[in-house]
Nucleic acid binder design. Sequence first.
DNA 1: TCTGGGGTCCTAAACCGT
DNA 2: TCTGACGGTTTAGGACCC
Length: 413
Amino acid sequence: MPSIAHRDERPQSAPPQSALHDPALPRRIAHLDMDAFFASVELLRYPQLRGLPVVIGGRRRTPQEGASAADAALPLSAFERLRNYQGRGVITTATYAARAFGVGSAMGLMKAARLCPDAILLPVDFDAYRRYSRAFKDVVRSFAPVMEDRGIDEVYIDFTHVPGGQEQGGRVLAQRIQQGILAATGLTCSIGVAPNKLLAKMASEFDKPQGISIIFEGDLATRIWPLPCRKINGIGPKTDARLQALGIHTIGELAQQDAGALVRHFGKAYGAWLHDAAWGRDERAVVTESEPVSMSRETTFERDLHAVHDRAELGRIFTALCERVAADLQRQGYCGRTIGIKLRYADFRSVTREQTIALPTQDAATIRRAAGQCLRRVALTQRLRLLGVRVGNLVPQSEVALLPVAAGTPELF
DNA sequence: TCTGGGGTCCTAAACCGT
DNA sequence: TCTGACGGTTTAGGACCC
């Protein structure tokens, strides 16, 4: 389920959970995952599409194109069909009816159109999803205040000291939260409750949709070890392939490996983490707030562009990206010192360049100037398919004395 | 017919100063 | 003065996640 990622799940220095209240209570951590979130929101807005193959995604279209105004009375003929889609783009979410045709997240739309030409294509409407996201999180917090935001459609919740949080291992509270969210939004979700985040995350997938799964430490061998390693949040396709090459397919097989051998193969931090994860060990706390580290904007072009031949168009896009990042920074009240660019060539290789400036900024022209210097450091002979602008090293605006901008240097575009 | 956009964190190398 | 050992910061790339 695509959305806005928040913080990486992979190994990091994990401050141990502080047992503030009653250290005798066993830690019960819930992971709540909304069921097919984007698609479910769209089906609330367009109930006439229920049961039909619907995919969400594609490049942004103007509001007039396709079906944009939420209208339950809109006839089916008003919706754009996948077969009529032209150009780049991937599927963000597909309804279960569409998945039956073999289409799914991250699939190119042209390929999906061949599998299911009659599918209805809806544009992504992040504003709508954000409204529903706020609504379900408000419900969660009304039951359990220690909630960690994990992006648009999922959260971790510390059940340990919440009334009902220990009953039946957390099932009672999980049911209340599910019912509360359904009543407030019309949406369903799945919840896993376990001794820690790692296991809770896995548990929430056990019984989708509308499931509740309760895991205790003693369930490790029976319910976790039979699963493929890929089910561990933090083992992606690359690591999985390396594990497979070593003959390690399940979490149980991973757990049986010597920790030292894993460290030799995967490095000190990651190797040790793999071993811990296979044994269900995870001490990370549920963190209720965090500061952003970077903000970025990027765009894939309708067609590959050439630095020289399409210079004017690239320049416009580049400036617009800088302006959007600056607007994001200003709206959210941050300034940043590290300005970077990312570009992707037609052959899909990508490169990044970045530069740290003297003072944190949120000014579009300053960002544009620094990003322009980064751009001078990359080869621009090949055609480009993507351009991005990033500002990192963020500090809250309130901590920065904003100074006038220095005179610029000549730029490429 | 290839492959979106917005994030986080880790690692290794380069570089700089003590 | 030269060399080496560290250690901190910046930079580029990669892996992973939603």
